[in-house]
Every structure is written in C-alpha cells, then in structure tokens.
C-alpha cells in the first residue's frame, strides 16, 4: 500500500478517534448515553474482533482452507484454548506463534 494512502488512513483514524473520545467531554457534558445505544455498544468489541480474527485464520491468500494444511487455523485453535484457560495475553500469543512456526517446519 502506498505511503500516502497509509498517511490518509492514519489522519482519518486520528481525527475520528479523537472526536469519539471528545464527544461527551466537550459537547454533551450534561447528557447521558441513551440506554439502547449503550446496550448496542456493549457488543461492538466482540462482534468486530471476531469478524477480524476468524477470516484471518481461515483464509490463505483469499481462499478458505479448512484442512490440516492450514497452519494458521491449527495454531489459532490451540491459541484459543490457551486464551480461554489462562486469559493471559503473552501466553496466548507465545503458544500461537510457537505452534505456527513448528507446524510450518513440518507441513
């Protein structure tokens, strides 16, 4: 991707993120977030993060690969178990990367 494109992405993210943070601090200091909106926002992280993870480990070069040949999928599944058991960020990333590298050596 061109450096100028990445610069525009950076600027748009920076301004947008800043406005989200500033929203109630500056503009609506006396109001509250409507309860319905709060309940919707509660599920944004789970939905968004999962929508990014799953395609990233299932697809290889734009093609879905659900087989033992897909190291990312296998390492990802193992890392998910480690994450659920330990809730530890370094252990999850460590176990996932180690499995990924080992599988690449042998598959």
């Amino acid at each position: 991707m061109a450096a100028s494109t990445i610069l525009w992405i950076t600027l748009a993210m920076a301004v947008g993120t800043f406005l989200l943070r500033l929203s109630f601090i500056q503009f609506f200091a006396d109001r509250e977030v409507p309860p319905v909106l709060q309940r919707i926002l509660r599920y944004v992280p789970s939905a968004a993060v999962s929508a990014i993870i799953l395609p990233a480990i299932v697809y290889t070069n734009g093609v879905p690969d659900v087989s033992f040949g897909n190291e990312r999928l296998l390492a990802g599944i193992l890392a998910l178990f480690v994450a659920m058991r330990t809730k530890s960020f370094p252990l999850t990333v460590g176990a996932g990367m180690a499995t990924f590298w080992l599988l690449r050596l042998f598959i």
Binding site: P45, S50, I53, G76, L80, T92, M97, F100
Partner: peptide, 14 residues
C-alpha cells in the same frame, strides 16, 4: 499472525 492471536486474548476476556 500475532495480530489475530492478540485479539484472541482480548476477545476471550469480553
């Protein structure tokens, strides 16, 4: 590949 792995740790907590 560390990106999806990092998000996995984040996701499980949510």
């Amino acid at each position: 590949f560390a990106i999806p792995l990092t998000f996995m740790a984040v996701l499980v907590k949510a």
